[in-house]
Design a protein around this nucleic acid. Sequence first.
DNA 1: GAGTGGTCTAGACCACACG
DNA 2: GTGTGGTCTAGACCACTCA
Lengths: 238, 238
Amino acid sequence: MSSPSPRLAPYAQVKQYLKQRLATGDWPPGQLMPSEAELVAQFGVSRMTVNRALRELQAEGLVDRVQGVGTFAAALHKVSSTLTLRDLHEEIAERGHRHDAQVVAQEQVAAPEALAAQLGVAPGSPVFHTLIVHRENGVPLQCEDRYVNPACAPGYLAQDFSRTTPTHYLFQATALWRAQYAIEAGRPTAEEARLLAIAADEPCLIIVRRTFSTEAAITIARLVHPGSRYGVEGQFTP
Amino acid sequence: MSSPSPRLAPYAQVKQYLKQRLATGDWPPGQLMPSEAELVAQFGVSRMTVNRALRELQAEGLVDRVQGVGTFAAALHKVSSTLTLRDLHEEIAERGHRHDAQVVAQEQVAAPEALAAQLGVAPGSPVFHTLIVHRENGVPLQCEDRYVNPACAPGYLAQDFSRTTPTHYLFQATALWRAQYAIEAGRPTAEEARLLAIAADEPCLIIVRRTFSTEAAITIARLVHPGSRYGVEGQFTP
DNA sequence: GAGTGGTCTAGACCACACG
DNA sequence: GTGTGGTCTAGACCACTCA
């Protein structure tokens, strides 16, 4: 009737126990932890069960395991967190707000040398370009300057990006394999300042994102956000 | 002699096969994928082996599994990446550069109301405060304004932060349980601009990070970086 | 050689979803 | 009921490290 705890699975119990003792500092970073055999004896479960608990802790970065040596409490010297780069449309919709996009440019251009190198196409060859301003409840939130490899998404220019977003379209039209991003602070260009309706010296959060399929580069985007209106948040729990 | 591939473990082969077909779009997002039993038959391995491959793909966010129903290709509508917030000292050392820190303040202060609430202490009660400028090869890279809950790290004020970093010290002195961060762009305060030797209107990347132990808040830090000198990078591979 | 982790197996029982 | 995933077991073989 009232038990909200459906009895933790054995592997989860072992995991929880180890996590707990790690969190309370019973095993300082670098410390040798109990071996699988010891935990098997202690919990009365099979080795596979203990192994799974330890393997998952390793995947979470809480322990280091070395074959032939043992399991060690991880030096938590880096705090990793999952940074989620989402489709802006979804993000705004989740807040219960209204998203709309103003398509400033949607065209085919000849790739300048630097861009061509990054997209992996010949200099001067045609690439797709869009410049879109995204607004949340009418307030400009992001200026999206994007170049797309035509080979990866031939139908790109035919899309109506006031109804869907390039991110969303590319996700379903291409097979994403790898993404790379850089987050920095900078000033908007004159055009970006105008489109975002901000002062020319307003600090902006700039995200440059490149995505790749198994072989070719799919797209490269420069996302400029007014610093006063947008930030990236996240959290991390062991 | 020349084989750099020590024969992939069976579970890894299954995983690689599925990853490959997902990447090439053979199973569009939402599509029902082969059941464990089918993969067992196809690869001639035991079910535990197939299960492990699928479980890891799920942990990586590539598939969704529903008990009693099946395994589905995940809707890749969010691209998650591991954002690593590291000890700046390590980061600089890894680049082969020299790190040094200028301790501007290291003191005990009475917590103003807003801060007290965030640290979970009584307003006006003593908290530790440090203001440190970190330099890479002599160039100011980060202004670290940090408040620490004295209950979590009683020895904090006795540290020599020109030799170690607060991050490093707190990692080993406390049991970290949860971390929260926000990344935004903004202007430095007048003091920060002076300490970083930048113009008052230079855009800065500002990271506000809070870390917690199992119960109390340990520390809250405001990390200000000149936008022209520092950014956060990362990448994501399925 | 003793101890460790890395992995696999062939079966088993369960909870769940669906027709 | 049938098919699905969730989990556990008791044993096995291997590769590795260290004394």
